[in-house]
Design a protein around this nucleic acid. Structure first.
Lengths: 233, 233
DNA sequence: TCATGTGAAGACATTCACAGCA
DNA sequence: TGCTGTGAATGTCTTCACATGA
């Protein structure tokens, strides 16, 4: 809640056309901006547009369902500058967003729970993001333990701390029922994880320095059901 | 985006202690407030607290990880009033939130896609919300069609329009890969659906009167990975 | 005393609108 | 001309802080 990050960036990063105005010091980037940047990148990649071509803010805005002013602000905030003539160079824009949102090295992710949800995540995820790989999965089911499922090695939940410490994993996805979720969260934090994506329908207690994103599946349906009723159809 | 709903409510709904100030006319409730109200309700139900007891805003705030002022504002916005002496009566609060967020009748929901994700949703959902039931599932796999899986009848995707029209379903969950998602969304809209929960990693084009909630699973991981790096651990 | 309900302030997010430039 | 980058305006959301009341 109210997560703001301060990023200290140097100017080599930016393909700045407008290279007169170098940005100094720190810049604030909101969660919403990050989400949109990730969205822009994926839209650009999936669009099939020529990476050597360019795109105007209003075009990208249309593809992303936001306003053109929003696009320009977001790109400004990562220090990527376009040209009034050609707009933004697609390939370089994709790259710049990547430099901003991706780590320099590959980030390893742990997946807790290989039930239907866990396997769905693996399917959606599989090879999509080169800088982000799910390297370890955990489950209580002895049938699954020590096997490779959907391309990922499955460990026993008892090895959680050990494996996460060893592999220096900082990101975890909780895809188990709510009953065990808090206990797992505690273990994850203990083992050094600093970001948790939680699919269990429960509020997890974690220290404030650990980033947590809740994707409560029940709540999502309830919310849509509410707004569906308010539609004028 | 910027979804605001105007609700016209009558005062019979509210267990107003402070019955001097009746709210007249229309009130704006934001998406965020709705999410929190749904969260409060679930926390209250799951907490195991005695429904005949009461709770103070700061206690509920602690359980929900928000501020007490936020809790009071949210409850105010649905016209539920507590007492400075006892706080809010738990049972009546649960009921009041329900009267606000639930439909008067049961709402039927369609689930598109019975892969791992679809089955995960069914598992999480199963019997949790009495006013909301997934009544029809759709899949292309002939193995699944015309069978009852996880308690829900599975139809062929070809019957989509027909079944949704017949059952007057207004809410749908898209749990299929991105490749077919836009086509399905178009059909859903055609069939009269007014709220869509989309799990496919793609921006769906729907008319503005249709409410759409995106729960992009890839983007969620990318976002958490980003903020995990910014942690001070 | 202590918690509610709420006006007002503050923080944050989005959009407007226009200078500046090729 | 038609775009970008951005100050200023607007809009939305959250928190502060205090009058009120049992």
């Amino acid at each position: 809640m109210g997560y703001i990050c301060f990023i200290n960036y140097s100017c080599e990063y930016y393909n700045s056309v407008n290279n007169g105005t170098k940005m100094k010091g720190r810049s604030k980037i909101s969660e919403k901006t990050i989400e949109r940047l990730l969205l822009y990148r994926r839209i650009l990649i999936n669009s099939g547009l020529n990476p050597n071509g360019s795109i105007y803010s209003h075009q990208l805005a249309l593809l992303s369902s936001v306003t053109s002013a929003q696009v320009r602000r977001d790109l400004m905030s990562i220090g990527y500058f376009g040209s009034p003539v050609h707009g933004y160079e697609i390939g370089k824009l994709i790259e710049s967003i990547g430099e901003f949102v991706d780590d320099t090295e590959v980030q390893r992710v742990a997946l807790i729970g290989l039930g239907h949800l866990g396997r769905a995540i693996l399917d959606y995820f599989r090879g999509r993001r080169p800088k982000l790989t799910i390297t370890a999965a955990f489950d209580i089911d002895p049938e699954k333990v020590n096997r490779v499922l959907h391309g990922v090695r499955c460990y026993s939940i008892d090895q959680l701390t050990e494996v996460i410490r060893q592999e220096q994993i900082k990101v975890a996805i909780i895809a188990i029922p709510e009953s065990g979720a808090q206990e797992i969260a505690d273990q994850l934090v203990q083992a050094g994880v600093s970001g948790i994506l939680n699919y269990a329908p429960i509020k997890l207690n974690v220290p404030p320095e650990v980033y947590i994103e809740n994707r409560d599946m029940l709540l999502a349906v309830e919310k849509v059901a509410f707004f569906a009723r308010r539609s004028k159809r």
